[in-house]
Amino acid sequence: MVLKVEDDEPYGETKPILDAGGTSDAEDTDLRIQEVYKSITSTIKTDPLTIDKPAVALDLFSTAVHVKNAALAKQCIEILNNLLNKRDALLILNHLSKCRSDTTGDTCDLEPSAPPIEEAPDEDWVHDLVDNLRNNCLLEIDKHADYVLKQKEFLELVYADVLSITTRDTLQVSSEIIVYSAIMRWCIEECRRRTLQTQKVNLKAVLRDLAYAPRYGLMSKKEFLCRTIDGVKGPDRSGVLDEAETERILEHIRKRGKNNPGELPFKGSVPRRASNGKHWMLHSGMTSTKGTCDKFIINFLTCWTAVFD
């Protein structure tokens, strides 16, 4: 089945078939969802889904979660993995996190439909499938950190995702000042969402462990002492670090390359390292470099699943 999206449709403005929480404003909306769902699943065995827009696949995934069809959700996740790139990594990651928080339990509650249209896999396997896609998003972010951390979508992430991204040892960022700028811009946006004034006490309360995500000891003295960066105050002026912490970091920066300055807490002086650049295969659980061969295998398995599941 081919789901067509008009080329002139504004990106990111696709109206969801259903939100991640599975709620509707009217009773007839749910009936329409069921009709669309039956139409999709009635042809899915003989005509695999072809989707070229991540937003559409995410909307359909939310519907699959709502109607508890694991086979349809599986296809959506495979499609998303195939479409994954640096531009859409945050969109997909954010949606998966909202799915976790909006459904009952810690993870998406995928169960067979009643009566079952497709035989659902083991629940833990489905959860692993979602986790693998999330891991692939993080690997994609690692490789394009400078680009991703400056995206406006970064400011829309939940706290846990911001922390996961910015504390990764494998984040390939050209300078730690970019990480600092990202967490501060996110913090200011989060204060606005909570209707808090951007005072030092509120910034520190919102940031929590994020205040130590940037590896300050790897910054240059000029970067650490900069007045502003991307519209936010520099590290020694923002107030998120106390005076003793600031002095210790400056001492480390001054001694770096001359004497042994020791290590800073929270990995503040530990260089990040490049990841192996590999993605998790969705079916076998083995790692493989994402490329043309992987895309062929995923497409083949998608068709195979649709015909024989």
Rank of each mutant, 00 (worst) to 15 (best):
D59V: 00
E119Y: 10
G268F: 07
L58C: 02
R273W: 08
T23E: 07
S164E: 15
D146W: 09
R237M: 11
I51F: 01
C191I: 02
P48L: 04
I183N: 05
A211V: 10
V206C: 04
V179F: 08
E190R: 03
P265K: 10
I298Q: 15
I79T: 01
L31E: 07
I298R: 15
K86N: 06
D242E: 09
I44L: 13
I141L: 13
E78N: 00
T107D: 08
D122N: 14
I249W: 02
V270Y: 09
I44H: 07
T29R: 11
K15V: 06
K152Y: 07
S220I: 01
Y159A: 04
L18M: 02
R227G: 09
L80Q: 00
L91M: 07
Q75R: 01
L139Y: 11
E78A: 06
N132V: 04
V162A: 06
V173F: 11
N276F: 08
I141K: 09
T103K: 00
D19I: 03
A73C: 00
V2Q: 08
L91K: 02
E6I: 04
V67L: 04
S275A: 15
D59Y: 00
E263Q: 12
P48Y: 01
I253R: 05
A160D: 15
L218Y: 05
N85E: 05
D102G: 01
A244R: 15
N85C: 06
A213R: 09
G239I: 06
L203P: 01
A73M: 01
D19K: 00
S113P: 10
D7W: 09
T46V: 03
G234L: 10
T23I: 02
T305I: 04
P121N: 03
K200Y: 07
L139Q: 13
Q151Y: 02
L31D: 07
D7M: 11
K150A: 15
I178M: 14
P261H: 11
E111S: 10
D142C: 14
S181T: 13
E247A: 14
I40V: 11
I178L: 15
F296I: 08
L282R: 03
Q172W: 03
G291E: 09
H279V: 11
R215C: 08
V201P: 12
S238W: 02
L96Y: 04
R254P: 06
K74D: 01
D124I: 12
T107G: 04
E6S: 12
R185Y: 07
P116T: 07
L301Q: 11
T287V: 07
E190H: 10
I117M: 13
W304A: 11
C187I: 01
Y37L: 12
E176A: 05
S101G: 05
D209E: 14
T46Q: 09
R272G: 12
D8W: 06
T14G: 10
L133G: 09
D242F: 00
I177V: 13
L149D: 14
Q34Y: 05
D102F: 07
L218G: 09
W280V: 11
I183L: 09
S174R: 13
K4E: 09
I77Q: 01
R248H: 12
G21I: 03
R193C: 08
A89G: 03
N81K: 00
G21N: 06
